[in-house]
Amino acid sequence: MTAQLTHTYKRWSRLFVPALVLQLIAWWLGIFWVGTDKDQGDVYRIIFVHVPVAWCAFMWIILAAGFAVFGFVKKKSFEEMDRSAHAAINLGTVFSALALATGSIWGRPTWGVWWDWDPRLTSTLVMFLVCCAYHVLRSFTPDIQSRRNSGQIVAILAAVNVPIVYFSVNIWRSLHQPQTFVRRGGSASSDIGLVLFANLIAMILLTLVLYKMRRTAIAAQESLEAAREGR
């Protein structure tokens, strides 16, 4: 294992605990510091975890598509971009699952149901399914070059599909029933906005550290496979 790979992994894994502590501070602000919402009561505090998680999920899926496009454009970096896209989709899968879970947990006391065919939740669900299919595709493709090619294409398709599904579910929902969750008339308090922003920044930083850790681990794994196959 080269010194560079080990150095990279150690550097980023050391940042994990500080990033986690930062996130815990942001969560503390959301649970204990900011006041209660007059419409939803205290259960609205789930927003400080659900919204950052959902945004991070979308961010990493779009980044994965960006890596894939870059890999196709710059053939020399194809292998590296594939590893980057793989790590990004990994994160996107986990965070979309978390967005669905936290969305459901928030929906139960708010809407009275665990699931509603809300355009945002539905497009997150579809994105999660495509991410799962990405991982299944990679494990079902034995040849490394084909695996990289197919993976990159699916990463691009996954990102392109997200706005299409959101748009279509939005129209579909408006036909069948009115919005079950209506935005409040007044704008949100600036404190809520501030805490939400703090949580978003903390979550982005934490996912960046996780991405680097996963990326290095994937590089190590693929190096081992390449060495065994004599590539």
Binding site: L137, F140, T141, D143, S150
Partner: peptide, 11 residues
């Protein structure tokens, strides 16, 4: 995309 993959009926 799935031409060179196994388990195509699932994929």
């Amino acid at each position: 995309v799935t031409a060179r993959s196994t388990g195509r009926d699932l994929l």
